[in-house]
Design a protein around this nucleic acid. Structure first.
Length: 321
DNA sequence: GACCCGTGGCC
DNA sequence: TGGCCAAGGGT
């Protein structure tokens, strides 16, 4: 039984049954691995961009052990432009851990999930709930906003506070069908109780919503920091990686130099990509996605100022692709 | 807790 | 046009 009737379980479950999107990772035949892949891809990335890639991934790598055998470069290429490619590397590492240490079965225990790379407080509980039907607080940005409004009567959620957010949601979870309720809470935030222009006329809990009762006050918390993108290292790293995604053969540094005019920033970004393991340098000084062209150890050699001694081969003759 | 990490679509 | 937003995680 939920203690707070502002998000009544019966209403929410009924609404969810009627209007929930038919997403592939919600289908009964979807494996726990499919759920895990979806949750990683959906981190900070909209459903519409994830769906086609998710289908490709599950067809190509239907189990953790299947993905574990793939190279990092293949995984990064398949990730495409979903963004935050470190997620792909961590998912690949998680697949190897699951294949090697968990009998190729995605763990169902929250603490075991938390120990895997790329799986944090949200994703661990999302997998436990959506793949294994467990009752545990699944708190994402949608849920935080729904609770802030419907329960606390605020215009929006304040800064995240994992412990408090989870306590809030824990108190709402019904004993029966808690996992479906968790999905419904997220769906409500995604489709109705949206950040901008919420569709309150379509809301199943409109008449018990504390925000309505409060006269729909505006958000009064601290301003949310909006990240810049244009001109940042994130943009430059993305441009560099995009070159390497488009080739199978390692590329000369000159091929990377053309994507950004500021040489200092360019080299800093290339170096950080090497440090992050998203790029590797071959023995002849060219650059490639990791795990495909490095027979020996990967030298994280200087990529800074083109000094006299640096090996910088000319443009590949066949700039195929 | 602050800051960093991609990418694209929408109003 | 550009700020804002999108199922976060790691350091």
């Amino acid at each position: 039984m939920s203690l707070d009737t502002s998000l009544d379980a019966e209403r929410l479950l009924d609404w969810f049954a009627e209007t929930a999107r038919d997403l592939p990772w919600r289908r009964p035949e979807c494996t726990a691995w499919g759920v895990l892949v979806s949750e990683i891809m959906l981190q900070q990335t909209p459903v519409a961009r994830v769906e086609p890639i998710w289908h490709e991934w599950l067809a190509r790598w239907p189990t953790p052990s299947a993905m574990a055998k793939a190279s990092q470069g293949d995984v990064l290429r398949a990730w495409g432009k979903l963004g935050y490619p470190r997620r792909a590397l961590r998912l690949h590492a998680a697949a190897q851990a699951i294949a090697g240490q968990h009998g190729d079965v995605v763990p169902s225990d929250v603490d075991t999930l938390l120990a895997l790379p790329g799986i944090g407080a949200y994703t661990a509980r999302a997998v436990a709930a959506f793949a294994y039907g467990q009752k545990c607080p699944v708190v994402d940005t949608n849920v935080r906003r729904v609770v802030a409004r419907a329960v606390h009567g605020a215009g929006d959620a304040g800064p995240p506070s994992t412990a408090k957010d989870m306590r809030d949601v824990e108190a709402l979870l019904p004993d029966e069908r808690a996992a479906v309720y968790s999905a419904a809470l997220m769906e409500l935030g995604a489709l109705v109780c949206t950040a901008r222009a919420p569709k309150c006329a379509d809301c199943p809990v409109f008449d018990t919503c504390a925000w309505q009762r409060n006269g729909r006050p505006a958000y009064d918390g601290p301003a949310k920091a909006v990240q810049k993108f244009a001109g940042t290292d994130r943009q430059v790293r993305g441009l560099l990686l995009d070159v390497l995604r488009g080739t199978t053969e390692p590329v000369a540094k000159a091929r990377l130099d053309v994507v950004w005019s500021d040489a200092g920033q360019r080299d800093r970004c290339l170096h950080s990509l090497l440090t992050d393991g998203l790029v590797e340098q071959t023995d002849d000084g060219r650059f490639a996605l990791p795990g495909e062209h490095t027979a020996g150890e990967t030298a994280e050699t200087a990529v800074g100022d083109p000094g006299p001694g640096e090996r910088v081969p000319g443009e590949p003759l066949a700039s195929g692709r």
